[in-house]
């Protein structure tokens, strides 16, 4: 009785998720239901799949074993790493990392929560599919900072 002009309520809950333009064909197999570890509990059919609770993909784990993996940590795929027994999300990560990529970019492009992306990256590293370049020093050294300064100065 409020809105007779709306036939079948097209307004989605629109999870406050990553921007929609990232949903392009070819880059978004992240939620294909092929081998979901558990049948995602009670996802209503009309709901946007992005609202699936993120840590279902990691079988409920919220902490990975690689505490050193940060947002900017670079990840690259190892040769011959296209295993068949990967989950769709894992396969998407491996495909994305042909060029070195940060975990934050993986998370953004695959529309995965950062915490989820970090756990999956850690798993793939343990399985030998990814090279994860964790840096050992906490704070960059002066030479590195000088290079950043010079690089920024050259931007006009």
């Amino acid at each position: 009785m409020t809105n007779p002009a709306e036939p079948d309520e097209p307004d989605r809950p629109a999870a406050p998720a990553v921007r929609p333009f990232l949903r392009t064909p070819g880059s978004g197999p992240a939620y294909a239901p092929a081998s979901a570890p558990e049948p995602a509990p009670a996802v209503p059919p009309g709901e946007q799949p992005a609202s699936l609770r993120p840590f279902v993909i990691t079988s409920g784990r919220v902490a990975g074993q690689d505490a050193g993996i940060g947002l900017e940590t670079q990840v690259s795929a190892l040769p011959g790493a296209t295993g068949a027994r990967l989950s769709p999300e894992q396969r998407a990560i491996v495909q994305l990392c042909g060029e070195p990529l940060s975990v934050a970019e993986i998370s953004a492009r695959l529309r995965l929560h950062f915490g989820v992306a970090r756990i999956l990256v850690g798993d793939l590293r343990a399985a030998g599919h990814l090279d994860v370049h964790v840096l050992e020093n906490d704070f960059p050294d002066p030479e590195t900072i000088m290079r950043v300064i010079r690089g920024l100065r050259s931007i006009s």
């Binding site: 050193g68 690259s76 030998g128 090279d131 370049h133 590195t144």
Partner: peptide, 21 residues
């Protein structure tokens, strides 16, 4: 040349850029 040693913090001269933030 992608390094195969998955040692945490291994210095790599080859591929990925060093990220700073």
């Amino acid at each position: 040349v992608v390094g195969t040693a998955r040692v945490p913090g291994a210095p790599q001269k080859t591929t990925p850029p060093v990220p700073v933030k």
